[in-house]
Design a protein around this nucleic acid. Structure first.
Lengths: 238, 238
DNA sequence: CGTCGTATTGAAATCCTTCAATACGAGTGG
DNA sequence: CCACTCGTATTGAAGGATTTCAATACGACG
């Protein structure tokens, strides 16, 4: 399935120029494509995966449950991401990955990845780099959900998803599909569902943004990014 | 300076058994040792480091400033950590690293690291793994500062530092030096200094913990870990 | 002994949550 | 086409957690 692998290549290529030879070697990786409905657990706490996957289409979320019983979403993953690539080196998963929307995943065996890394050391570094890009997202999330007020927090999240989905080719004009509920937004931002609703209303009233039936439409990017304290440097995009 | 390098080895060894040959190769890396006072900027936003460092002694913090002007501390780094190792693959720093206490750092040139990785591919994987361990800290921090109440948040931070400093050999019995102010704790947890003070009083009153003049003493570990919702699985310790 | 950063406490204000009730919208079966 | 149902969205009002403001105390250090 060339589609998924080309997505990986897209990410890897971002800043590290792989040779045609190296790209061809990646394209030869055996990939198993699987589809899942929304709200399915893809990876569970305690799992010891023998393979990792790239998201070909759809959205995933990394989450943990707290002792209170509430579920916290720590990250949202978009097409091209490989959110469990870290299982290559941290064998026991300490979080859950579940599908937000229906998803298509491309699985690659760890053994095949390691074999490729032996032959093509620069591919090792490219994969390493993708895990570092992901950890930059977590770092920014600490800032966002831990240190900013509710309006800024939600605005920043929607700015980040706009830019990341655009980089993944899932944005037309100033609008993108975000098939999640306000309750999900609450689990991501650490706010109550009620307050998510109120903040969304404020953003709508201010004319910056609408979110309705799973579609985000950005009406005033400059104002929004300013309000959100959003500086995309941490995304390391070209 | 064998001390710093052996610290790296300690971290790397944690779960990946390097051969004597590989360890010897690491020990041969040229290291430049530097000392800094407290509150010095070690790495700045926009820097393009040509070398990385391991913390030989002291504490560092990774932080960003928000548009409000407030400084948020995203992570605290202990001896053995290599908090800017990611500059190997993400060349432009998007955060600041500053010293919390006086520190001793062991610098290694990127060029030397890359050269070693070429000769010893398993060292590449060991270094990759340390960056993944660090990103697990950020992931847990998202949960902690974004989704838990103030008491749990602060208790969790002090639990984590206890375990990490113990793993770094900086703990005697149930007490450890944490030479930071309550204002720093506020910048880490995303709370106000005043509230940090009140929460510390609560923890002291409940008999779980004292924090006074830069020394944390844990009086009731089980109760504290329970209150803090602290499960060390994310640290991937043996 | 004075000074300065840090710690501590009280009181008022604010942000956000919780509780509770209602409205909306898409899908389902009659 | 309509009534029903269920998940989601929306709004009001009250309560709680945390911040802000302001004042005082402590402790290390010159």
């Amino acid at each position: 399935m060339g589609a998924g692998i080309d997505l990986i290549l897209g990410k890897l290529r971002q800043n590290l120029d792989l040779t045609e030879h190296e790209k061809a070697a990646i394209r030869r990786l055996p990939v198993v494509v699987s589809r899942f409905d929304a709200q399915r657990e893809i990876v569970r706490v305690g799992d010891r995966p023998q393979r990792s996957f790239v998201i070909i289409s759809g959205l995933l979320a990394t989450s943990k449950v707290m002792s209170s019983g509430n579920r916290a979403i720590l990250a949202v993953h978009v097409p091209g991401d490989m959110p469990d690539l870290l299982s290559l080196h941290l064998p026991i998963m300490d979080f859950t990955i579940h599908s937000i929307s229906p998803v298509t995943l491309g699985y690659v065996e760890h053994a095949d990845i390691f074999r490729l890394c032996e032959v093509q050391p620069r591919v090792t570094h490219a994969l390493w780099r993708t895990t570092l890009l992901e950890s930059a997202l977590y770092r920014e999330a600490v800032l966002n959900v831990g240190h900013r007020d509710a309006t800024t927090r939600l605005a920043h999240l929607l700015c980040e998803l706009f830019i990341r989905l655009r980089a993944a080719g899932a944005v037309s004009a100033m609008r993108y599909r975000l098939p999640i509920t306000q309750s999900d937004l609450a689990d991501i931002t650490g706010m109550s569902t009620v307050h998510v609703n109120r903040v969304l209303r404020t953003l709508r009233m201010s004319g910056m943004l609408t979110f309705s039936r799973g579609v985000v439409e950005i009406k005033a990017w400059e104002n929004l990014a300013d309000l959100a304290d959003f500086d995309p440097m941490y995304l390391s995009l070209p």
